[in-house]
Design a protein around this nucleic acid. Structure first.
Length: 670
DNA sequence: CGTCCTCGAGTTCC
DNA sequence: CTCGAGGACG
């Protein structure tokens, strides 16, 4: 007795329907039924297949939940080798690539098919008579691993192709990857389950694809994008056509693919995708250019192991692996001890990174960075290098956890750490040469006294030579003293003296800021200057009086009082005065009526002005510049390469201005 | 007392 | 830029 044809038909219909929903969800990103309904269909099909095992088929979507674990993967020899692409990093190399091709083909202009280069894992999928029969990793290009069971669980890989895909064998090539949002969610889940988190989406995808138990792979949010075939159908003319066909067969294909011609067209595409990069849902590490005409591809052939007709134009890596060669401790102006990782130089985000801050002891302990560790380094927010994580399985034997020194590395004073603070501090105060140097650098900094030419190297020399101890000593320097220092020619010495001379004329705000009182930054210094109008009144104020200044509470008031109660500080201020340092007493600009002042936030690089210039224009009109975007922000002035602030502003509905609009608005405001 | 917003401080590389 | 913490405000 055979299975009734009604059941057979129902199973067939369910498979088609489920696969169509998979396609709508994973390929078209446009689901048409709720998840619960999908689950119902899926369970019904599982039920039928359990009752009628003879109805099981290779291409049934029920295989997508995974099957029994295997002990190892078998090897698969690729029928057409999976080659790698040559890489290019500069416009010159792209120019050369285009020229090489034009010469070889003896034509003036070449059309290219261009697409993003996914940062995932290359795989090859084999279909026989339209049914998925095998999937393999790239391996060494000639031989890979059979990961069919795992690839079957990837929902965006069709298990059966439409009729127009033809009969016979078709080998589809593409990339398996994980969307960034899915990766975050997965890591969140791993964390909640106490399991190991993945370093990045690429590693997560690789680990998932190489699971021996495909039921685990089925739980991982893998995606697939097709970018080519093993051997194209002889009727197909161009690579663009290949991609069109693949898309027609139900494979996801990069939406950002285009045509371009000439080196300038390639560069324009590279720049366009580069600007788009952060908004893509997946990680890419560059773009790929391929000669579009397939007959030309054939004519160009291969150089050793890479096709001559294609090239990968790569972005500078945003994350790299490197080794921690040491962990030093730096002493800041306030005595804060900061551990810094010394790294084996690594090129990441367009620059060579050798140092990365580890912030403080808590952070360091959380990440447990040790000397000898292999770490992932990233340039956070475009600039500052950061140790993202440690590869624990690459840790050599015999390492020990880092611990903060008990004595200051610069002066040997005791290190203290109050339990409610994250940072450890040197208790040496100005006895500590490191703190003295930092205090001098702060005094000389642009926003403070603005002494041009007084940088780290020079301060080191001056302090080490015992010539300068306090800011007041700077104004006692002369040519004779300076010329005794190394690397100090007459020219630079007289430049420094001129800069010092210029800095004698300050404002009260700048001078107070330059003193480096704990918890008193630029903004508080301005409020203080405005409220008291003179240094004398400020120095005489009680903590109660100080607290009546906006943004000054008990802690800041105490810091100020302590500073002015310290005889050494009074002496330095007195010496500075006698050295001719003077400032305009009085409050600077008058306070604007509340409600009339607008808050601006600046971000990115403006086309014709610096951020400081923009800031000066805003403040000259009595408006405010804040550091971060919040609900109270009135305008965000955004230039090139604005990052998180721009997205935050969009989220909160804050008005975003470009430079032109900003200039108009600032003129219109009182 | 909790929450939100700012400010201060520290940091890297060219 | 990011983090932590001080201050304002409900």
């Amino acid at each position: 007795m055979g299975t009734s044809s009604a059941v057979r038909k129902e199973a067939e219909a369910l498979r088609r329907e489920i696969e169509e929903h998979n396609r709508r969800y994973y390929v078209l990103d446009d689901p048409s039924i709720p998840d619960a309904e999908y689950d119902r269909l899926f369970r019904r099909l599982q039920e039928i297949e359990a009752l009628h095992p003879e109805l099981m088929s290779e291409d049934s979507p029920t295989h997508r939940v995974g099957g029994n674990p295997v002990s190892e993967f078998s090897e698969v020899r690729h029928r057409t080798p999976m080659l790698s692409l040559s890489n290019a990093f500069s416009p010159e190399e792209i120019e050369a690539f285009d020229e090489r091709i034009r010469k070889a083909l003896d034509v003036d202009r070449v059309a290219y098919s261009v697409e993003p280069k996914f940062d995932g894992l290359a795989v090859s999928l084999t279909y026989r008579d339209g049914v998925f029969i095998q999937g393999a990793t790239r391996g060494d290009g000639a031989t890979g691993e059979d990961v069919s069971a795992n690839l079957r669980t990837v929902r965006s890989i069709p298990l059966r192709l439409p009729r127009d895909a033809g009969s016979g064998d078709l080998e589809v090539r593409g990339e398996v990857l994980m969307f960034l949002a899915d990766f975050e969610k997965l890591n969140h889940r791993q964390r909640a389950a106490g399991a190991k988190e993945f370093v990045n989406p690429r590693n997560a995808a690789a680990g998932s694809l190489r699971q021996l138990d495909s039921r685990i792979t089925a739980q991982r949010p893998l995606r697939f994008f097709a970018y080519g075939v093993g051997t194209p159908d002889p009727a197909w003319r161009t690579h663009s056509e290949v991609l069109d066909r693949l898309s027609g067969f139900g494979f996801p294909v990069a939406g950002e693919r285009e045509s371009a011609s000439g080196a300038s067209g390639l560069m324009a595409y590279f720049n366009k995708v580069g600007a788009l990069r952060d908004r893509l849902p997946y990680a890419i590490d560059g773009v790929v250019y391929k000669v579009d005409r397939l007959d030309w591809q054939q004519a160009l052939g291969f150089i050793s192991r890479a096709p001559r007709f294609a090239i990968a134009h790569k972005f500078p890596a945003q994350e790299e692996l490197t080794e921690v060669v040491g962990i030093d401790v730096q002493v800041g102006r306030t005595g804060a001890l900061t551990p810094v990782a010394r790294l084996k130089p690594v090129f990441v985000g367009g620059v060579t990174v050798t140092n990365a801050t580890l912030h403080n002891e808590d952070e360091l302990r959380r990440k447990d960075v040790r000397v000898g560790d292999t770490v992932v380094v990233r340039r956070a927010g475009d600039v500052i290098p950061e140790v993202v994580s440690v590869l624990h399985d690459r840790r050599p034997g015999g390492t020990t956890p880092f611990s903060m020194p008990v004595a200051c590395p610069a002066c040997g004073s005791a290190v203290t750490k109050s339990p409610d603070e994250a940072v450890a501090r040197c208790s040496g105060g100005l006895f500590c040469p490191a703190q003295r140097k930092q205090a001098l650098l702060h005094f000389a900094s642009r926003r403070a006294m603005d002494i041009e030419g007084l940088g780290e190297k020079l301060v080191d020399q001056l302090v080490d030579a015992g010539v300068v101890d306090t800011p007041a000593d700077l104004y006692g320097l002369d040519i004779a003293t300076l010329s005794r220092l190394d690397r100090m020619a007459e020219k630079s010495a007289s430049n420094l003296l001129a800069a010092l001379e210029k800095s004698r004329h300050a404002t009260l705000q700048r001078f107070v800021y330059a003193l480096g009182i704990r918890n008193v930054g630029e903004s508080t210094a301005r409020d203080l200057a405005m409220h008291f109008g003179s240094l004398g009144r400020m120095m005489a104020a009680s903590t109660e009086e100080l607290e009546s200044v906006p943004d000054v509470g008990p802690i800041v008031a105490k810091s100020i009082r302590q500073f002015f109660d310290e005889p050494h500080n009074l002496q330095v201020i007195d010496e500075l005065r006698r050295a001719g340092v003077a400032w305009v007493e009085g409050g600077g600009r008058p306070a604007r009526e509340p409600g009339k002042s607008k808050t601006f936030v600046l971000t990115g690089t403006l086309p014709t002005m610096t951020r400081d210039e923009a800031r000066a224009m805003i403040e000259a009109k009595g408006h405010k510049v804040a550091g971060s975007v919040s609900k109270k922000t009135d305008f965000l002035v955004a230039g090139e390469d604005s990052g998180s602030k721009l997205s935050k502003a969009r989220e909160l509905g804050v008005t975003v201005l470009d430079e032109g609009e900003f200039l108009k608005i600032i003129k219109a405001l009182e």
